[in-house]
Nucleic acid binder design. Structure first.
Lengths: 191, 191, 191, 191
DNA sequence: TATGAATGAGGATTCATTCAT
DNA sequence: AATGAATGAATCCTCATTCAT
């Protein structure tokens, strides 16, 4: 008798194991074996549930995006003005879960791979477009025509701070990162 | 006597081919074959001159660092004040050669791999330390105690703009990038 | 659930194929491919079950030793006196299975490789020590202080006859070999 | 201007280097590179003088045979009777130069390879035939019809003692080996 | 004469994937 | 549902060999 309802459990397990393996071994050295071992399951299971390594990687990136959104959406709902909404975006990006090395390294890996994998590229473009359109939309009432430029700058700042954190640079902890991003925003809104 | 003095020529060729292959195929799909094919040489030659794929990758990262420095050093010499020196750093990082997708993607790939490869990690730490110490040194007379923070912010900004460019985001061309970085600096120095 | 219990079957198959390949191709030209082809299996299976070529070679040598012992032990049990025990050693070494060119050539190959491979060297030393200590122990009551010397001579004789057989010399068939070894023993015990 | 008369010098150098490399690295791990490095020359030189690795190996085995003969022939000339001639054979086989591990290991390697290489096989058969015909010829007047058997036994004894020495067994030094071989002869002639 | 350059076939090994159970 | 068995293509690397100089 087959156990029922295992699918969502196993899928979550395997996605978590993928993040874990990319963090531990790097993207280039992440194999079906390292993932399944990290999940405590057999290699065959990946094909059973995802149909291959590629689809699992794509599913993992999608899961990362969903998670980021699940941090962002409630914060956006609570925010009352344009500025608060932009700050909510910053907060979400530097929320504890998003700012773990595990997660950042995985984002970094997917960014590196995105130009060479159609599905990952598609997801990455969706993420980028969403982030900038959010920012631009809310920056418009605050900085007018400079909105696209400030949005680009803030997006770059956020990603750059992620990168600094992933690379283990000094002064790149969650607190400092948030402060630097807010400081950037403050100065843009001031002038 | 055989053809002599091929070593530096071949080494340069193979390093260029490595950058090319990482750009075209991604780091994870860059193999001894893709590199040697890009160089128009046989796979064996990589071991002849570098002793393996790993050393070639490290040599490529070193070459990238040397190139960046060769953009930076003369610009720093020409600069007369602290501010001019910081602007020289920005200029060098967004100079034409450094801002090619080929080069940026390669940097990105190495950053992703650095945490899992001792030699690449060493090189990456050297690069990060140099950049920030340059910035901090010259920011000190301009922003005083805020120097470390501004240095971290500017470094993140530079890397974030590289990343935006590598990921093909809009408004992330060389001109826009330079403008955003300079704008960041201006606002930090303004107060 | 997959096919279970294949491991011992496959291991025996691969060890037999190793002996076969060394016999057919020589040690230096025995590759993972020649072995797996002789076993009618794929090259990957060797790493699946043994973890590599080296461990398979060591396992093969161990299997040869086990086989030789399995000829020797019951014969020793049946033997009632010192002399009978020594004759049992001779019998075992020239038993049909041990005296096949396949097996002898494999021993010869391992002897040649033993000085350059720690694990094979270890096994070879175990074999040599066991043989001589058996012989010495049983020769002591028969030839007294000359036991070590006679043991060394008899061991050399046995190996030399193996070698002659492996090299296809005339008068080195199983019968002749046994007769020569027994003759050596007789003459040593006589005087 | 080409240096003249280098051929015999280089050939001797390369043959010595082959023996050295087989001793140090084993036959299976002896490559054109290990040989040329041991000779302090470039890899290309082997093809220049021998036309390849195979011919060099054959030349090395031939050189070993010539050396053994050069020990044997003068000793045979000095010998006055059948028994002295047989003892001369024993002496030659255990002469200092022939009983070096370097040399024995090389013989062992060639024996292992001989069944799979026509040229090495041919040489090995010549060696074996010569040794036994020498022994048989001189044993005839001493042991009559038993000559072939005693010749086979003595040949096996000699090779077995070589093997023992190569494998580093105790009581297998040059002195002990010679004593064991002579003892074998004595007892055969006695009865 | 002798070399280092260069090759490409073949080495061991790893990998994603398939499959019977 | 989930596994271990098994594969064969692809990986990095080594090798004997060729060649221009």
């Amino acid at each position: 008798m087959p156990k029922l309802g295992m699918e969502p459990i196993r899928k979550r397990q395997l996605i978590a194991a993928t993040v874990e393996s990319i963090h531990r071994n790097g993207f280039a050295d992440t194999t079906v074996q390292t993932i399944s071992r990290a999940a405590g399951l057999s290699p065959g299971i990946i094909h059973h549930y995802f149909g291959g390594k590629g689809p699992l990687l794509a599913a993992t990136m999608r899961a990362l995006m969903v998670e980021l959104r699940s941090c962002l959406v409630p914060a956006l709902r609570r925010a009352v003005g344009s500025r608060e909404r932009i700050e909510a975006v910053i907060e979400a990006n530097f929320a504890e879960r998003q700012f773990q090395p595990q997660v950042i390294v995985t984002w970094l890996a997917f960014w590196g791979q995105a130009p060479h994998d159609p599905e990952l590229g598609r997801l990455q473009r969706i993420y980028a477009r969403r982030l900038e359109s959010h920012l631009r939309y809310d920056l418009r009432p605050l900085v007018g025509a400079r909105a696209p430029m400030v949005a680009a700058g803030l997006a770059a700042m956020i990603d750059g701070l992620w990168l600094s954190h992933a690379l283990g640079r000094p002064d790149a902890g969650p607190g400092a990162a948030r402060a630097l991003a807010r400081d950037y925003l403050d100065r843009q809104l001031a002038g």
